[in-house]
Nucleic acid binder design. Structure first.
Length: 423
RNA sequence: GGAGAGGUGGCUGAGUGGUCGAAAGCGCUUGACUCGAAAUCAAGUGUGCUCGAAAGGGUACCGUGGGUUCGAAUCCCACCCUCUCCGCCA
């Protein structure tokens, strides 16, 4: 959510920002509703003041005088109820509109409508050369007995999967790998976050109200989170954080659930896009300073790049274009690792910063050195999403004989150097 | 799932219809005292919206949302959450 004062004073900026994100907004309506809101508020406050004044008089007055005053008050109240109802209506529309206004993207964000226009910032490593036609990950995994998609569908339904044997070993090795890197080296606090989360935190992080379709919902009304970001940010909801605690950096783990509504037909095979997965997420809260946000954005991006480098995966970093940014994101980098079977890069990580868009919705503040309450800034980036990362590992490390080499850093955790063969 | 208790400011905690944004204590800030500190004394110390150049004013907020009333932290209703006991359970 943006500050209404900021919107009022920077209409053109907000309008241009929404256009860059290709998000339709009705700013004229918002401004009109805001004017109405202010007018009614003032009108009602004046009436309340009058009411309070008279109430005090009634308290002192006696007998006849008192009854006369009470009668007068009843008249005064009649008009107030209307104003109050009207204000309530206006507030509902005001809030609904406010939730639709996207955050303004950074100057450096490229123009564009979809991920096709994302700008490649840099690459790392080399595309692996194959003397044969590389197979897609689901074929390799099935052939080597790492995954069972047929039974996955039988048991869990569409996009269901089992990982077994070396497939499960690889997944568990990746967990230990990423846990080791973050718990011991990065200065992050580990967080084990709930996935079953109430509506507020989804609204606060910007996934609702517009993303209802993508979320699973329980019969009790909670939603299943698609990322630990939701709960981790919600953790600080309605709180004032001690400034000395900032920046707060979390290495948050949670199971993740996504309905993938509207992506039928996309990535149907394998474990690239699944309904149920696990993710380690970097979540950061910092002081309300653009330069600090930018610096931390680079830092959490570098953290993930290091992981891909250690895994020996060729990847590129793209700056996401305006049309590929979420409602609250100011800027986003995607890390995309090479997918040999598709002859293109596919997303493994996504690093964004939000300024105070999320914290304003979540009401997360801190008191600065001048004693002023400010909304903190927030950022997040994938640390590692599994099983997705398996797709690139398996494809990039496949050999001519159909087996798959284990990335050297994972060998100690997997316990062997080749998948799909006996030790 | 059943029974009971309870949600008040940064914290503890008083307040059961009116002058209560809320006692008291703690904490915090500033000042006095002191070489300095502690102790002591004095003053101050919530947030949102809104009017105002500012000083300051208005209004709202005692878990959330409704209701009763001239007037609600206080009464009524619904919901949320916490705690205790029972049941179940990794």
């Amino acid at each position: 959510m943006l500050d209404i004062k900021f919107i009022r004073e920077n209409l053109d900026v907000v309008k241009a920002g929404a256009a860059k994100k290709h998000i339709a907004v009705d700013l004229e309506r918002l401004i009109a509703v805001d004017e109405e809101r202010k007018r009614l508020r003032q009108e009602l406050d004046a009436k309340k003041a009058e009411q309070n004044r008279r109430s005090n008089e009634i308290q002192i007055a006696k007998d006849l005088e008192r009854e006369k005053l009470i009668e007068q008050m009843q008249h005064l109240k009649a008009g107030m109820a209307e104003s109050e109802d009207r204000l309530k209506e206006v507030m509902v529309e005001w809030q609904t509109l406010m939730l639709t206004i996207p955050n303004v993207p950074d100057m450096s964000v490229p123009d564009g409508e979809s991920d096709e226009q994302n700008l490649e910032a840099r690459t790392w490593g080399e595309k692996p050369a194959f003397s044969f036609t590389p197979k897609p990950h689901h074929e390799l995994m099935t052939a080597l007995g790492l995954a069972d998609f047929e039974r996955g569908a039988k048991v869990a339904g569409f996009r269901g999967y089992f990982l077994r044997g070396d497939g499960a070993r690889l997944l568990m090795a990746l967990r230990r790998f990423v846990e080791d890197r973050f718990m011991n080296r990065e200065g992050f606090e580990p967080m084990f976050a709930p996935s079953l989360v109430r509506r507020e935190a989804f609204i606060g992080t910007g996934y609702l109200p517009q993303g209802e379709e993508d979320l699973y919902k329980t019969q009790n009304g909670e939603y299943l989170a698609g990322t630990a970001e939701v709960a981790t940010m919600g953790y600080f909801m309605n709180e004032v954080i001690d400034q000395s605690m900032l920046p707060l950096k979390f290495f948050a783990y949670s199971p993740c659930f996504r309905r993938e509504a509207g992506s039928h037909g996309k990535d149907e095979k394998g474990v690239f896009r699944v309904h149920e997965f696990e993710k380690y997420e970097q979540v950061v809260l910092c002081e309300a300073d653009h330069a600090t946000s930018v610096q931390l954005h680079e830092e959490i991006t570098a953290n993930s790049e290091k992981l891909l480098q250690e895994l020996g995966l060729h990847y590129r970093v793209v700056v996401n274009c305006g049309g590929d940014l979420g409602l609250g994101q100011v800027k986003k980098y995607d890390l995309e690792a090479w997918m040999p079977s598709e002859n293109r890069y596919r997303e493994t990580h996504s690093a964004s910063y939000f300024h105070d868009f999320q914290t304003r919705r979540l009401n997360i503040r801190y008191r600065d050195s001048g004693g002023i309450l400010r909304y903190a800034h927030s950022l997040n980036n994938t640390a590692l999403a599994i099983p997705r990362i398996l797709t690139q590992i398996v494809e990039n490390y496949q050999k001519a004989d159909g087996t798959v080499k284990v990335p050297p850093v994972l060998v100690p955790h997997v316990g062997k150097d080749t998948l799909g063969v006996a030790r």
